[in-house]
C-alpha cells in the first residue's frame, strides 16, 4: 500500500491569467495530520478542490489514497470527507434532513457517529441550515464529514465561527478519533496555534508555490532565527538560509539547518551574533511569507553572501 495519502506532482491551476496553483508538489503521509498553510489566495482551496475532482488541473497530476484524481474520482469521494471553506449546504434542510440526504452516498456511513458527534458538538438538529449561525453551520458540516468514517478528511477552515469549547472538542476529535485511529487529515487553517498543537506535518504555500514542507518537530529542532550585528553582512537567501532581513544595523537570518555553523561563519566575517533562537510556527510563517513580497526594500546593491557550505 502506498505510504502517502496524498501526493501531487507539479500540479497547476490557472484561472484566465492567474496561476492559482503553480507546479505544486506536496506529500501527505498516511495517518498524519498535515497543516496546509498559506495566506488568503495562496492556492490552498484550489488545491483541495483539485484533489477531490471538483476542479480540473491545468497541468500536473495527483494521487489520493493511491488513486489517480480525475480517473478514479468516485472511489476517491467515497473514502474522503471534505469540509468546505464556505460551509454552504441546502438552506431549507435541517441537520437531521441533511443526514438522511447524505448518508446514502458513503459506504462506511455510521449513524452511531451521527448521534455521538451531534451530542459532543451540541449540534442543533432540527433547525433549517439557513437559520443557523456560522458556528452552528460549521458544526453541521463537521458532523456530516465525521459520520462518513472516511480514510482521509480534508478540512478547509474547519473551526470558523466555533466558540472555544467547539474548537477544543474539534481538536480532541482529531487527536483521538482521527489521528488516533490512523486516519489522515489535511487541514487548512489560519489558526496557527491550533495547527501547531495537532499537526505533525506542515506545508506552507504562497502564490501557489510550496515554500516549506517538513515535519513540525524537525522545524522546531532545526530552524533558527539568527540575529547578528555588523556591517557588510551577507543579505542573500539560498541553501539553508530561507530569509535574510535588515533591521537597522541588525540582520536577521532564518536558517533551516546548521544554524550554529552559519553563526560561526558570520562571526568570522566580523559579525556579533546577538541571538540564535528557536521559532514558533507563527514566526516562521511571518518570516517566510512576508519575505516573498515582490519588492523588499534594501536588497539592491548588497554584497552577495558567500556560498554557505552546509555540513
Amino acid at each position: 500500500m502506498n505510504e502517502l495519502a496524498i501526493h501531487t506532482d507539479k500540479l497547476v491551476k490557472t484561472y484566465s491569467k492567474l496561476r492559482a496553483v503553480d507546479e505544486l508538489s506536496i506529500n501527505v503521509p498516511r495517518g498524519g495530520v498535515y497543516g496546509f498553510l498559506g495566506r488568503n489566495g495562496a492556492g490552498k482551496t484550489s488545491t483541495m478542490r483539485m484533489l477531490l475532482g471538483l476542479a480540473r488541473p491545468t497541468a500536473g497530476s495527483a494521487t489520493v489514497l493511491g488513486m489517480s484524481i480525475g480517473r478514479e474520482q468516485v472511489a476517491i469521494l467515497e473514502r474522503t470527507a471534505y469540509v468546505t471553506e464556505g460551509k454552504v449546504l441546502y438552506g431549507g434542510m435541517t441537520a437531521r434532513e441533511l443526514v438522511r440526504f447524505t448518508r446514502g452516498f458513503y459506504p462506511n456511513w455510521s449513524d452511531d457517529a451521527v448521534a455521538r458527534y451531534a451530542r459532543r458538538f451540541d449540534v442543533p438538529m432540527d433547525r433549517p441550515f439557513a437559520q443557523l449561525s456560522l458556528g452552528n453551520r460549521t458544526k453541521v458540516c463537521l458532523l456530516l464529514a465525521l459520520a462518513q468514517q472516511a480514510d482521509l478528511l480534508i478540512f478547509d477552515e474547519p473551526t470558523s465561527g466555533l466558540d472555544p469549547v467547539g474548537v477544543d472538542e474539534f481538536q480532541r476529535v482529531v487527536a483521538e478519533d482521527l489521528a488516533g485511529d490512523g486516519r489522515t487529515v489535511l487541514i487548512s487553517s489560519h489558526q496557527l496555534a491550533d495547527v501547531e498543537r495537532i499537526a505533525d506535518w506542515v506545508g506552507l504555500i504562497d502564490n501557489g508555490r510550496l515554500l516549506l514542507e517538513a515535519r513540525l518537530d524537525d522545524i522546531k529542532s532545526q530552524y533558527r532565527l539568527i540575529t547578528a550585528a555588523g556591517t557588510g553582512l551577507p543579505q542573500r537567501k539560498g541553501g539553508d538560509i530561507l530569509s535574510a532581513n535588515s533591521d537597522g544595523n541588525f540582520r536577521k537570518y532564518l536558517v533551516r539547518a546548521n544554524a550554529e555553523a552559519f553563526a560561526a561563519e558570520l562571526g568570522t566575517q566580523g559579525a556579533t551574533i546577538t541571538e540564535v533562537s528557536p521559532l514558533g510556527l507563527r514566526e516562521i510563517f511571518l518570516e517566510l511569507v512576508r519575505k516573498e513580497e515582490p519588492c523588499t526594500s534594501g536588497n539592491a546593491g548588497e554584497i552577495p553572501a558567500p556560498a554557505f557550505s552546509s555540513i
Binding site: 477544543d168 480532541r172 487527536a175 489521528a179 488516533g180
Partner: peptide, 17 residues
C-alpha cells in the same frame, strides 16, 4: 499514547515519539 493525545489535544505520533 492515545489518552495523552486526546487529553492534551495533540498528535498521537508526537506522544509516541
Amino acid at each position: 499514547v492515545r489518552k495523552v493525545a486526546a487529553d492534551m489535544r495533540i498528535n498521537p505520533n508526537t506522544v509516541a515519539r
